[in-house]
Design a protein around this nucleic acid. Structure first.
Lengths: 358, 358
DNA sequence: TTGTATGCGTTATCAG
DNA sequence: CTGATAACGCATACAA
């Protein structure tokens, strides 16, 4: 041994056995003490805990997991953390998870099946006790093949194979009642005197179809004869908002029901370039209720969904299942129409029953 | 044994030894084969891999970590996933991490020291190979006490104890050059003829001070005599945008430099309620360059920062350090002024040199 | 009430 | 080139 130098803190990680030694007990006693095992006397329990605190003991999750067969970890597969809606879902999920002592490993799937499958594999390797998939590109069927369905929850799955009626929802699915939301929106529109209403699509997912259909049928139910026009999503190509706005402006409907707020906002922006005024020239309603919809000019009328709540619910549901073996249930959350400035009450042209104008 | 029923798939998890058995080799050979150890013959390597694929083998990360002393996991501590800026940082971080085969465990600190410390502890328990803290509430000093500084990166740390000059930045820090961004913004403003410029604060963090100071000194450097007014952040209380807008509207400056885009957007909304027009009555510039700033009406002039890039950089830096023992470096990213509609060229009142009006 | 011994699934060391 | 064996850090069945 050379006397010359000793190392400041080679800082070997402190193990349970170190704590045990410091408290002059065996490893098992230390383990039990830290776990508040009632069999351990209060005295030793305290002294062990003191030692642990003193030494700054941090249990090794890997070792524990290996032994315990669970990780207290949840996997969250989400398309895009930059999206306001997904951000809210993620936020709610993480918060609820951690409230129960779970930590979450998050992977963004970018809406690409390949990445999503990779994410699922990661969850498997890390032994996630449960996983939530938000709005995925892969089918619910495939998802359930790849991860234990009892430990899987699908949040707003955007897949056509999924029935959308409340009663027939398979367990482990959380979604919003888009149809009812759109119905409210369309009702608001026709109550306000709008007739020539168009729907602006937003991708080829199932939600798009549900929303589109809801618009159509509600309009029919309300006796509106004017056919519903539908913009965009022509073929597979994605068109940018500018093009879309131009097409819309060329033959303006009275109101536009948009697939979501992002689209609505982008459209409003492009429409403004084209000198069409909202709501004077055209009414617009969005979907989602993202925070900036409330700050837009004009403020956007929208169908708000409880995104954060869905995330929280997903985590809570998963954890309940894990801990108590409860069955995963299916829940369909009600969205809420928020009427703001992007729609108005139209002056009644003929003599129809309009809304009660203020 | 009763013959009555057999269980469909009690599905015991398939282990390495199962793969080994299926390929008729020992566990060690199987392990090596899957790791592409060159010592294993191509033939057996292939057969092992085939068996693994066939059985759908998924390695157990916990066991591996326990043995390997690393987890291929990164921890990301972030204030709020709902915030557009943080969402972008998180997105970039996750993407880059996963590109290198790392997975990320994310915890939101809510800007509360208690939660942040808890998050750090979680990372420690799970043996994160590296951790990034975004804009935290705890001091860099404390952070470095709680996690190995060689494995820690601070993204846009909002703490006064940190020097902000490029040369003197401690390693492991990634931030934007807010001062230069604000300088550009203010220069743009005075070039456009603005004189009576006010700064609107956004919390008591260090960034706020940096930005505020940059406004003040730039104005002084440009020879603007009119004193800079500062709104809000009175004491500790947080005031809502409405109040703030009222106070501002009561004695309108020519332009408002806002702490960030969120604030700017909220202010624009409230100002509109108060019938003050942007940019006719007052110019506004934000900071961050969140996507919706581009869609606002009027579109927001702002100092855009590369949020996603910071996240990516943080992850890349961490991983480089982990894998190659490289030193963490300090980097200060340049923001970029984006001039849009919320500021305009003022008609020159007297005979000063104005910008080159178009 | 506490200690001893064992195993969780992998990788790595050391023989063959 | 391949196989037995130990060890990673912890929790628990069993013994005392």
């Amino acid at each position: 041994m050379v006397a010359s130098g000793y190392f400041p803190t080679p800082r070997r990680r402190v193990l349970l056995k170190d704590v045990a030694q410091a408290a002059s007990v065996s490893g098992s006693t230390a383990s039990r003490a830290l776990a508040d095992d009632p069999r351990i006397s209060l005295a030793t329990r305290l002294s062990v805990k003191a030692a642990a605190a003193e030494l700054n003991y941090v249990p090794n999750a890997a070792a524990r997991s290996l032994r315990m067969k669970h990780t207290r970890t949840l996997g969250l597969l989400i398309p895009d953390l930059r999206d306001p809606v997904h951000g809210q879902v993620a936020s709610g999920f993480e918060e609820e998870a951690r409230r129960s002592g779970y930590c979450v490993i998050m992977v963004s799937g970018e809406n690409e099946p390949v990445r999503e499958r990779l994410g699922l594999k990661i969850f498997a390797e890390h032994g996630a006790d449960g996983v939530a998939i938000v709005s995925s590109a892969i089918s619910p069927r495939e998802a359930r093949e790849r991860v234990d369905p009892d430990r899987l929850i699908l949040v707003q799955p955007d897949h056509t194979s999924l029935p959308r009626r409340e009663g027939s929802l398979p367990p482990g699915v959380i979604l919003t009642d888009d149809a009812s939301g759109l119905r409210a929106a369309v009702n608001h529109l026709v109550d306000s005197g709008y007739c020539r209403i168009a729907y602006v699509e937003g991708g080829g997912g199932a939600s798009n179809k549900v929303r589109s259909d809801a618009v159509t049928t509600t309009l029919r139910d309300r006796g509106v004869k004017t056919p519903v026009r539908t913009f965009a999503a022509s073929g597979d190509t994605w068109r940018d908002a500018g093009e879309l706005a131009a097409e819309i402006a060329a033959d303006l409907p009275e109101a536009l029901v948009c697939y979501d707020d992002k689209l609505a906002l982008a459209l409003m922006d492009e429409l403004r370039k084209l000198k069409v005024r909202v709501p004077e020239d055209v009414g617009i309603v969005g979907f989602d209720g993202i925070p900036f919809a409330a700050l837009a000019n004009p403020r956007l009328t929208t169908v708000a969904t409880p995104a954060g709540e869905m995330g929280r619910l997903a985590a809570a549901s998963l954890i309940r299942t894990i801990q108590f073996g409860a069955r995963l249930d299916a829940v369909m959350l009600p969205p809420e129409l928020i009427v703001r400035e992007s729609t108005r009450t139209l002056p009644a042209p003929a003599g129809r029953r309009g809304g009660t104008a203020g």
